[in-house]
């Protein structure tokens, strides 16, 4: 079983960590260099955790569990106007990121108002490419109830946050409702506000666990990190993508940040040691995000094998 962890430490000798992960059969999901600091998101075989911990201790780094690693979460505000950004939305996104997930912030084009709020088809499809979504609503009970129409058609689990206390039964389409956030005009700094960020993170964690359980009932033909490694190896151009994270991981596939028209065949032809190509075990389609390539791994019930 692979354990998701986050390594924070100096750039000096960090390649030792990467080497060890490769030797152990783990995966490096994400690498962020900020001047002399480095943050690595890793998947490590749990039985080898001790040896990695020893190395990290030697390097004076820090190793923490990142329960949300390898997932992508959409943080959605009614619009991108000053009314909703930056404070709360950025705080939530940042907190999720610290727990290892990759967050995308989405401002709806017409999400505002009580009567007039709406979401369009493109936005729904875009949100559906993620593993979970967090909708940030305001301070009024009535508005939060009415705005259910925004996430009713979304397939991924939706965590709704808003100000007032509302019983979960009143919001049947939400995976969970986290109260005590609402619209605020300052950064989260009070203990109660930081506590609410923790509650959002744990709600998202539960939502992702549910998706994982569903996937486990009909396992994917292969794991997304393995596909990521193979694509990275066989389509080296991806390393030159201007994106900070050239391959984004989802629970059921990956998003390759290369133009679809130019690279779809190269991605489809990526082959594994077992002799199968990626095209045989996954659907490759254009992503709703820019011109990227969306890879969705088929479950074993469709392909008939697991490796």
């Amino acid at each position: 079983m692979l354990e998701p962890v986050m390594f924070t430490g100096g750039v000096y000798k960090h390649d030792l960590v990467i080497e060890m992960i490769e030797d152990l059969g783990g995966y490096v999901l994400q690498k962020n260099v900020t001047q002399s600091e480095i943050i690595l998101l890793l998947l490590v075989p749990s039985e080898d955790m001790k040896s990695l911990q020893a190395l990290v201790k030697e390097l004076r780094g820090e190793l923490v569990r990142a329960p949300l690693a390898g997932t992508e979460v959409a943080v959605i505000t009614p619009t991108l106007a000053i009314h909703h950004l930056p404070h709360l939305a950025c705080d939530i996104a940042e907190y999720l990121r610290r727990n290892g997930t990759k967050t995308n912030m989405i401002g709806l084009s017409r999400g505002v108002g009580r009567e007039i709020a709406q979401i369009n088809e493109y936005e729904v499809d875009l949100v559906n490419e993620h593993d979970a979504a967090v909708f940030i609503f305001g301070n009024f009970v009535d508005c939060i109830r009415k705005k259910e129409s925004l996430y009713r058609n979304i397939d991924v689990p939706v965590v709704v946050t808003g100000g007032p206390e509302i019983p979960k039964e009143e919001l049947p389409y939400a995976f969970e409702y986290v109260s005590a956030v609402g619209r605020i005009a300052h950064r989260a700094r009070k203990a109660s506000e930081l506590g609410m960020l923790d509650r959002i993170v744990s709600a998202v964690g539960r939502a992702l666990d549910q998706t994982r359980e569903e996937i486990a009932k009909d396992p994917l033909t292969t794991s997304p990190p393995r596909v990521m490694d193979a694509v990275r190896e066989q389509v080296p151009e991806v390393e030159y993508s201007f994106s900070p994270l050239p391959i984004a991981l989802n629970l059921n596939g990956i998003r390759v940040k290369l133009p679809y028209g130019q690279f779809k065949d190269r991605v489809r032809d990526v082959t594994f040691d077992e002799g199968v190509s990626l095209g045989e075990i996954a659907t490759i389609s254009p992503s709703r995000m820019k011109e990227y390539i969306l890879v969705r791994i088929r479950p074993s019930s469709e392909t008939g094998f697991v490796f």
């Binding site: 301070n139 009970v141 100000g163 605020i184 005009a185």
Partner: peptide, 21 residues
């Protein structure tokens, strides 16, 4: 009006924050 007591309290905070800003 109605059950928006929380909203009213929160808007009080919000107005203070914005006017102070």
């Amino acid at each position: 009006t109605g059950e928006e007591e929380f909203g009213a309290r929160k808007y009080r905070e919000l107005i203070m924050d914005i006017l102070q800003d």
